[in-house]
């Protein structure tokens, strides 16, 4: 009992951080603050006018995002649609993995993050005017990662030929890997699937599901939306999870 009581504040803290992670309800965006944060923290990479041509961009292999054409990789919205504010907030808050220069900005205050989200939207006003039509996809509950589900996922991995880019063993050495370029014309490298820390959209099962269902607009990585059903997508996620990302775990029967 004592331990429970002692744990309570810890729990409370965990809860409150969990809450703090969620962007609070939308209010009037503070563009002045947004611009200030942007000039302070983002401009060296993303550029004064948001074209991704900041002063250090020339030295980066993965170029900073060009905010003026509304293409964003990590989204809850269907392939090609503009992201939601919460998508941008999430990306800014947790960064984009360890394979590119985009840092995690968790140390900014919540209102600063919200303000900078609002500010980067002003670089592509036309595209973001369509934001109200960009509906969040619904993520159905995860299919249990059973032996069958994983086998099913492996079948899809092979049938879709993900290996063409990612390599048969997921090492990022597929036959097409050397020639991939992104939508801006820059070389892009498919990650080694067994190095989840490289993933730009996160490597938790829900993140993988989102990445596969919505694609990474602007990159060479295609979506399976229209190819696989939701259940089949979960099977594929289970396969990736148990085979590449966190291998060596015993599979529940």
């Amino acid at each position: 009992m004592k331990t429970v009581i002692r744990l309570l504040p810890v729990l409370g803290l965990a809860l409150s951080t969990a809450v703090a992670q969620d962007p609070p309800a939308a209010q009037e965006p503070d563009l002045v603050l947004g611009k200030k944060v942007y000039l302070q923290s983002c401009v060296v990479c993303h550029g004064i006018s948001g074209k991704g041509d900041g002063i250090v961009a020339g030295n980066l292999l993965v170029k900073p995002r060009n905010f003026t054409d509304g293409r964003f990789k990590v989204r809850m919205t269907p392939n090609g649609k503009v992201p939601l504010d919460s998508d941008l907030y999430r990306t800014i808050n947790r960064g984009m993995g360890h394979d590119n220069a985009m840092p995690a900005w968790a140390n900014l205050k919540v209102d600063e993050k919200n303000a900078v989200v609002a500010y980067i939207k002003t670089f592509a006003p036309k595209k973001f005017a369509r934001q109200d039509r960009a509906k969040e996809i619904v993520i159905p509950p995860r299919t249990a990662a059973t032996v069958e589900s994983i086998a099913e996922g492996e079948k899809w991995f092979t049938a879709i030929q993900c290996g063409k880019c990612h390599g048969e063993t997921g090492r990022g050495d597929g036959v097409s890997a050397p020639t991939l370029v992104d939508s801006w014309g820059y070389k892009i490298v498919p990650p080694d699937l067994s190095k989840p820390w490289l993933f730009i959209g996160g490597s938790e099962p829900v993140d993988l599901y989102r990445t596969l269902r919505t694609g990474l607009t602007g990159s060479a990585m295609p979506t399976v939306d229209g190819t696989l059903t939701e259940d089949q997508t979960w099977d594929l996620v289970n396969f990736l999870d148990y085979n590449f990302i966190r291998p060596g775990r015993s599979v529940p029967r």
């Binding site: 293409r71 392939n79 090609g80 879709i160 030929q161 607009t217 295609p222 190819t227």
Partner: peptide, 21 residues
């Protein structure tokens, strides 16, 4: 074989979908 349909428009939504065998 696997193709992916990757359109890169200015105005429309970009699409990039798998077109497996």
């Amino acid at each position: 074989v696997l193709h992916n349909l990757h359109t890169i428009p200015e105005e429309n939504d970009e699409t990039n979908v798998t077109m497996p065998p």
